[in-house]
């Protein structure tokens, strides 16, 4: 959705580090040291502290985690579970219930197509189909080069401008497939 993945820019430089922690080399000492040195975990810890480590703050904390890390990787979920004193399955259940939380990394850019009723009536489905064909991915997927994710939204509330899309936070209305494809190309070129 439009508000997620906004910290792409901040996450990008740290990518090597992240993929290192992705490696399932289960040397816990090494890992915990890495965690300490990782300021993103510090940011997450601060959020949990601000919520007094209340279990009820799980969704707020996951929002923060998603903002900070770009997506909810397994280590992050474990960290949150530990911090909020919650069972792992409970954390996983909540993280997978809400569509805005992603357990997989998204693309550098995002293109969200609003699929609300007003947009639907004005041809959003055809627009989406054209974008899927153009990008060679299905809605909800990211191109193999990790450049762009194509997402669908329930309704972004700009029904007056149907059909609407959001590319990297910027809303554009009254779209044709050609216009959207051009905007995507421009975004990718940046």
């Amino acid at each position: 959705m439009s508000v997620q993945n906004q910290p792409t820019a901040t996450v990008a430089p740290e990518k090597p580090q992240k993929s290192a922690s992705d490696n399932k080399s289960k040397k816990s000492d090494n890992k915990s040291k890495k965690k300490e040195s990782d300021r993103r975990y510090k940011a997450l810890d601060m959020t949990m502290k601000r919520h007094h480590y209340e279990a009820d703050a799980l969704i707020e904390v996951l929002h923060k985690a998603q903002d900070t890390f770009g997506y909810l990787e397994e280590d992050v979920l474990r960290h949150v579970a530990k911090g909020l004193k919650l069972p792992l399955s409970r954390v996983y259940g909540v993280a997978t219930f809400y569509h805005l939380f992603s357990l997989k990394p998204g693309g550098e850019h995002t293109c969200v197509v609003c699929l609300g009723t007003a947009c639907h009536v004005k041809g959003a489905s055809e627009l989406l189909a054209d974008l899927e064909a153009e990008l060679g991915i299905k809605v909800g997927e990211t191109t193999s080069d990790g450049k762009i994710s194509l997402l669908g939204a329930r309704c972004i509330g700009t029904c007056g401008l149907a059909p609407a899309i959001v590319i990297d936070e910027v809303v554009s209305g009254k779209q044709t497939s050609e216009e959207t494809i051009k905007q995507i190309k421009d975004a990718l070129a940046q």
């Binding site: 609300g116 947009c119 329930r154 309704c155 509330g157 029904c159």
Partner: peptide
């Protein structure tokens, strides 16, 4: 939590 598509 206004979720109905087409409502804003």
């Amino acid at each position: 939590d206004e979720g109905d598509p087409g409502a804003f």
